[in-house]
Nucleic acid binder design. Structure first.
Length: 143
DNA sequence: AGCCATGCACCG
DNA sequence: CGGTGCATGGCT
């Protein structure tokens, strides 16, 4: 007895590398080690090396997208990697022509269904003396 | 901690 | 062969 259904969503401002604009062919976004953010995704432990989990997201059009939630944890094995990533978004990003700065919103409902939506970057006043520093661009939205 | 970059493997 | 995805390393 526990686990009330808590729906919530998280949003992430896409980075240049996330969209592949920087030349990287990863097409995956990085998930910070925020407990609030990680709780949205299935728990991947360092029990195994580079555990992955295929997740299904549904967009506004009702189309299904399968992304791969991977935990690169070779730091505990032979490498130095220790980060979560959500890859396999090439088709999605390409279809909606998402660019760096755009925001994607990941929503989770009671049935454990996950939805994904995007939001075009809003041209806020760009401070000339301030470079748009990304990082920790994730946002938790409680519903 | 996060983002960028790259080599290799696999598939169409 | 080209595109896509995986995996890893490096830089900021």
């Amino acid at each position: 007895m526990r686990a009330e259904k808590h729906k919530y969503a998280i949003s992430k401002a896409l980075s240049a590398n996330d969209t592949g604009e920087t030349g990287g062919h990863q097409a995956g976004i990085l998930i910070p080690k925020k407990d609030s953010i990680l709780s949205f995704f299935p728990t991947l432990t360092k029990e195994t090396k580079n555990p992955r989990s295929k997740l299904k997201f549904i967009d506004c059009e009702g189309k299904e997208w399968f992304f791969t939630f991977i935990y690169y944890n070779n730091r505990f094995y032979e490498g130095t990697r220790n980060e979560f990533r959500l890859t396999g978004m090439t088709s999605f990003i390409r279809k909606y022509d998402l660019k760096a700065g755009d925001t994607i919103i990941l929503t989770c409902d009671d049935e454990n269904n996950m939805f994904i939506s995007h939001e075009r970057k809003t041209i806020v006043s760009s401070p000339p003396s301030t470079i748009l520093k990304l990082g920790s661009s994730w946002k938790v939205v409680k519903i």
